[in-house]
């Protein structure tokens, strides 16, 4: 491999790793410690500009924005991770069955995913939320449902590709059980493709979560989430622009980090 290709690949991976790493670490840290309380209000310190005392300034209730952004990143990353866990599990299970066996189940599942894929994901999530009601669990469940079809498709096409590979045929001849072929023989071989889609999925989940919270149907106040902070901040653009910038840039930071990271992994695989 020529030298410049190796160098470029490392650049994507390191940049992505640094960006997602800081976001995830700060987010996890926020569950145990934040520089200031995320909910304590202070009338004397409303709309303080960014300074060493309050890194990102304070909001309309005098709460420290940096602490709240940390907490919000933690919440967003955790919710997105659960969403991806849910949809990826459904995807592996249904994708493996439909890809390997085909048949009527495959036909039904494919028509449903076709229908779901065509629509704006936020619209579907809105429908599910309005049926189930708002709240954190329902948010995870609705986004999990909405993101499942893309995993089913990816996993299915990989199983379809591998089911007639020589080593699988041989395993079948040797009398290996179906469950073992599906999850011990084939599954490890689709992981490279799968991890990239998990990364992209995390990205989309973070965007969707913050979007729903921005619209007021995701994480509810007083819990900090990047989305609901942005919607609070919007009313104070004139007096305190940093209030909106901080959570917004945090979202961009995470999303950009994940996409650089997944690009790095993709190039690693090539």
């Amino acid at each position: 491999m020529p030298a410049h290709v190796t160098k470029k690949r490392n650049k994507y991976l390191t940049a992505g790793l640094i960006m997602t790493g800081t976001a995830v670490l700060l987010g996890i840290l926020a569950f145990f410690w934040t520089p200031w309380s995320t909910t304590a209000m202070s009338a004397s310190e409303r709309f303080a500009a960014p300074s060493f005392r309050h890194l990102f300034g304070t909001d309309n209730f005098g709460r420290d924005i940096f602490s709240r952004v940390m907490k919000g990143m933690g919440t967003s990353v955790m919710i997105s991770a659960l969403v991806v866990l849910l949809s990826a599990s459904v995807g592996i299970f249904l994708g493996a069955l439909t890809g390997y066996f085909g048949g009527v189940l495959d036909e039904i599942v494919m028509r449903v995913t076709d229908a779901v894929n065509g629509f704006p994901s936020i619209l579907l999530a809105l429908v599910v939320i309005s049926v189930l009601g708002t709240g954190r669990q329902n948010l995870i469940l609705s986004l999990g449902i909405v993101f499942s079809p893309s995993y089913i498709r990816i996993v299915r096409s990989e199983y379809l590709r591998l089911r007639d590979a020589d080593y699988i045929k041989r395993a079948r001849l040797m009398g290996v059980g179906k469950g073992r072929i599906l999850f011990v023989h084939i599954l490890p071989n689709i992981l490279p493709v799968f991890w990239v889609s998990v990364m992209i999925g995390l990205n989309n989940a973070i965007l969707a979560e913050s979007g729903m919270s921005y619209l007021g149907i995701g994480v509810q106040p007083p819990d900090a989430s990047l989305g609901n902070m942005l919607s609070d901040a919007q009313g104070y653009l004139q007096t305190a622009p940093w209030y909106a910038l901080a959570p917004g840039l945090a979202i961009v930071w995470i999303v950009l980090g994940f996409s650089l990271f997944s690009e790095g992994i993709r190039r690693l695989g090539e």
Partner: peptide, 18 residues
């Protein structure tokens, strides 16, 4: 373009407003 694709539309809306 990579950065523009990472900005969620509602934050972009707020930036445009600002």
């Amino acid at each position: 373009t990579q950065t523009a694709m990472a900005v969620p539309s509602f934050f972009l809306g707020i930036l445009v407003t600002y």
